[in-house]
Write a protein that binds this DNA or RNA. Sequence first.
RNA 1: GCGCCUGUAGCUCAGCUGGAUAGAGUACCUGACUACGAAUCAGGCGGUCGCACGUUCGAAUCGUGCCAGGCGCGCCA
Length: 562
Amino acid sequence: MKDALTSLLQQALQQLVNEGTLSSIEGISPQIDHTRDPSHGDLATNLALVLAKGAGLPPRELASKLVAALPDNNMIAKTDIAGPGFINFTLSQASHTEVIAMILAAGSDYGRAPVKTENKVQVEFVSANPTGPLHVGHGRGAAIGDCLCRLLTATGWDVHREFYYNDAGQQITNLALSVQARAKGLSPESESWPEDGYQGDYIIDLAKAFVAGDAVSAADRDITASGNIENLDDIRDFAVAWLRREQDADLQAFGVSFDEYFLESSLYASGAVDTTVERLVEGGHTYEDGGALWLKSTEFGDDKDRVMRKREGGYTYFVPDVAYHHDKWQRGYHRVINEQGADHHSTITRVRAGLQGLDEGIPEGWPEYVLHQMVTVMRNGAEVKLSKRAGSYVTLRDLIDWVGRDATRFFLAARAATSQLTFDIDLALTQSNENPVFYIQYAHARVCSVKNKALEIDQAWSPQRGLAHLETLQESEELALALALTKYPEVVKGAASRLEPHDIANYLRDVAALFHSFYNAHKMLDAENQPLSTARLALAEATRVVISSGLDLLGVSAPESM
RNA sequence: GCGCCUGUAGCUCAGCUGGAUAGAGUACCUGACUACGAAUCAGGCGGUCGCACGUUCGAAUCGUGCCAGGCGCGCCA
């Protein structure tokens, strides 16, 4: 729709150039926006304002010349020049409603592009270490990351979803020591409880399972416990698998899946870490000082140089990070997006600096990052900070248990990642329009309900039949709803290109509101007026398709009844 | 002290690659079911867009400087 109008305006511009009114239209692409105020028509352009200075004409005068130069068409019903020189377009009835036929023909493909295998993108998200249950921050990362993947897929990208974790570091040792202590009957109050031990109740379950010789199967590993509480390696291997299984179960309950689990230990095993260090040393990007090896990260915009190899010999955490991202690059992912909590944002400069130091022509801004801010959980007006199971934080499983998967996903994905998020348990539990999830799902269920009702009245009534009578849709509520449906492809594209899934949630809220207004204002099923009734059914069905598709992008279900 | 993020209606938040009278939900008032789902709708109330300069025909949006909050500034991950 916008494209068609753009084309008309281009022709008008060319006409003005031919007349000599404008000298050149090099590099000018008309900017067309949907209007916010219905009195401004449906679409508007600021073209005359932008060109006025160069043309040496008052904006309004230039606008009227532009309008006069517009080719004949059946798309624009009315043109106005308003304000300082905006050109407002009111679309014809047919332009509003033709999208309905398009949507019914395309079904769930409407607004989506086919995947092109050459558009490879790797998305890393969640990446929680296997030292405890997933917390709400991981949940936000899972919701945003998963929606990003769905959006990218919908816009033609071939997406590879990856989960990276450390299975061998000091924190894992702390985990094993904690399980061992619990297996020996110690508690965090005991004098011999390990320093920095994990205190949550899940460690008790884990210790019991290990002693009992349980077998566990996670998405990326299987193991049977030896039950030997003196063998720390046995405990470590079992504990990692056990927590991975728990995280998998939570992610599955949340509707999130991965194509690959990438282990930090594999980077040491393959020699990738050593190779990375050698490359940086050979490239002259390092120096030794105080017994440690340093990366000259200040060469690449960091505010200080960073230690790579500690005095005692081990590498700092970001070295395998660099090796990991180098691996992504070598795998051919020239587009990579990392979704992670903003508390790790300082790693961005370091990882990019290390990659620059490899002198391989990796772009400075690679990889891309989406950072989410913290989540605060509120209930009964007070912050919820603790969970018995995890000890010091609220878990993703808690949220799912309290408010369900749909509400959890929606609330975690519906806000801009850059904003801190307050998760209101009471609001998420409300089953009314206070709760946007139910509001949107209700619109979907309502359409399903009215379609069934239509069939009860007359077996022959179907949305498809309404396509022959779209010209009967003349009411403002009908045209406003139909116009909103035409925006869906633009919204999907915009959300994907800006990596902002919350746009989808806002859009769906608007569509649901327009549908409810339409539904309340007009009788849908009128036995005396079959053409109009079926046309309205077609509009309702098109709305349902869009809502269903948008909810799918968010990973939220679209129930036929509630 | 430095870096990143945020500051918009009582509350939760959109709008931020500059555009017209700043939006939505909620809360608080009024109304609408002998109709297809009232889990809904219609209307009202409510804002110096943190503050101040600047750029521009035009600034919530861009720039600079302040103020306030969050998160980072480890030879932890």
